[in-house]
Amino acid sequence: MSTFRIAVFASGEGSNFQALAEAANTDTLGGAKIALLVCDKPSAPVVRRAEQLGIPAYVFKPKDYDSREAYEREIVMRLEELQVDLIVLAGYMRLLTPVIVHQYRGRLINIHPSLLPAFPGKDAIGQALAYGVKLSGVTVHFVDEGMDTGPIIAQRAIDIVSGETAESFAQAVHGIERELYPTVVSWFAQGFVRLEGREVTVTQADTKDYR
C-alpha cells in the first residue's frame, strides 16, 4: 500500500506541526507521513522545525506575487508533484482561495480552538472567555469557502474553571490540539472518514472522546 502523504500549512511556532511529525515518526499517524511544509513566513519557527526534522518546505513571501491565486497555483503544482492526499492547516494565517479549496475539497482540514459553530474566526479563546461560557474546546473540521464553517469531523470539550486566564486556557486548548489532530489525521490515513453533504462519519475508530 502506498504511503498516505500530508502537507501541513503553518505560519507560526509549529507546535501542531511538531506533534504531527512526532506521531509520524512513532508510527501513530495511521501510516501517514508529512511530505511538505507550506509556510508564508520565511522567518517562522516552524520552518526551523521542518529543517531539523528533515521535512521539505515550500516557503514563500505573499508580497512577491500579484495575487493570492498566483501563489496558490504554485502551491498546488508542488502538492500534485508530491501526490499529497490531505492538506492539514495548522496555524496557517491566510484565507485560502478556491484555487486550493476547490481542488482539495474533502481533503482539506483545519483545527480551531473552540467548539464550532461557537466563536469562529480570530481569538476564539478570548471570545469564549469574554462571553463567559463554562465549556469550550477544540474542533477539527473540513475547510470550505466560509470562515470556520466546514463540516465538523471531531470535537473535544474543555471546562472553563473560575479564574481562568487566556494564557492558562490557551495552554489547555493547545494540549488538546496536539492530541486530537494526529488522531484525526490517522483516521484519514486509514480511510475511516466519510463525508456526505455536511455529515461526517468515522468508521472503525474509537471516537467516543471526540464528539
Rank of each mutant, 00 (worst) to 15 (best):
S15W: 11
N25Y: 13
F9A: 06
V193R: 05
F60D: 07
T203K: 14
R198I: 05
E164Y: 03
L195G: 00
R107N: 11
A57P: 03
R198N: 13
Y104V: 01
Y71E: 01
V200T: 06
V193A: 03
V8F: 10
Y210C: 11
S15N: 13
A170Q: 11
G175Y: 09
M77D: 13
L86A: 07
E177C: 08
V8S: 03
T201S: 15
G197S: 02
T165W: 05
G175T: 13
L116W: 09
L36D: 00
Y71V: 10
I100E: 05
G175C: 06
P113L: 08
E72A: 10
H102V: 13
V101R: 03
H112F: 12
T3P: 04
T207K: 10
E81K: 14
V76F: 02
E164V: 04
R78E: 14
S136H: 10
L29Y: 08
K134E: 12
A205D: 10
V133N: 02
R49Q: 11
Q190H: 09
R211A: 13
P120A: 10
E196L: 06
G54N: 09
L195T: 05
Q155V: 07
V161L: 15
L82C: 00
I100Q: 00
E72N: 09
E69D: 14
R5D: 01
A35W: 07
G14F: 06
L29T: 04
V193Y: 02
E164F: 05
R5V: 00
A205M: 10
E13T: 15
N25M: 15
G146Y: 02
Y58P: 01
R68W: 04
M77F: 11
L20Q: 03
V193D: 09
I6W: 10
H112R: 04
V76M: 01
L89V: 02
A70Q: 09
R194F: 12
I152G: 05
F9H: 11
V143Y: 01
D209G: 15
V101K: 02
G150A: 02
A44Q: 08
E13I: 15
K61Y: 00
K33M: 13
P62L: 06
K41R: 15
Y71R: 04
E177T: 05
Q171S: 14
I176V: 15
G146D: 08
Y181M: 08
T3E: 15
E72K: 06
Y71Q: 06
Y131C: 10
D40P: 00
R48T: 13
L86Q: 03
A172Q: 15
I153Q: 03
I75S: 03
S11F: 07
P62N: 10
I176C: 10
D209R: 14
A170W: 02
L108M: 08
Y131W: 11
L79V: 05
